[in-house]
């Protein structure tokens, strides 16, 4: 379950982001979602891309790249939708390391990506509360 995220370690310098994005597009992949975490000397580019395993294989010799599973919860495009999701996670005592959001292909369809300490139980709790979560297959990248 959950979806695959690719993270890339980039030096905090001009030219780094474009070379990473260029490598992904050069491999013919679409970036569905992304976020950047920045420190003094470096940043981490986190992406949800189509065909993550193929892209990982193509890029891993060229970039410092990590592959891991994150939670993508379906969120209606309305006030209170995120709050409802967070309420479920909070009640389950799940800690969120980071999150970012992207819109889906359907109308009023959005997704929020979570990196949590306990992915499996978080996903179960959300599903039990009627909140859909994506898989690599259902994302239809």
């Amino acid at each position: 379950m959950a979806i695959t995220q690719l993270s890339m370690f980039l030096n905090n310098q001009p030219g780094q982001l474009i070379s990473a994005v260029g490598a992904i597009s050069g491999a013919g992949a679409n970036i569905r979602a992304m976020s950047i975490a920045e420190a003094n000397d470096f940043g981490i580019l986190r992406t949800i891309v189509s065909e993550p395993d193929r892209i990982y294989g193509l890029l891993k010799d060229q970039f410092l790249i990590a592959r891991n599973q994150v939670l993508a919860a379906r969120m209606d495009d309305r006030s209170g939708a995120l709050h409802a999701i967070l309420t479920v996670l909070n009640e389950a005592n799940v800690n969120i390391e980071y999150m970012y959001a992207f819109t889906g292909t359907g109308p009023e369809e959005a997704y929020v990506v979570f990196r949590v300490n306990d992915l499996e139980s978080a996903e179960q709790m959300l599903n039990a509360a009627g909140i859909a979560t994506l898989t690599d297959q259902s994302l239809k990248l």
Partner: peptide, 15 residues
């Protein structure tokens, strides 16, 4: 230089 087996998506871990 960071090596591939040391890198993860978590900033806190790298710090």
């Amino acid at each position: 230089e960071v090596s591939p087996d040391q890198f993860s998506d978590l900033m806190s871990q790298i710090q």
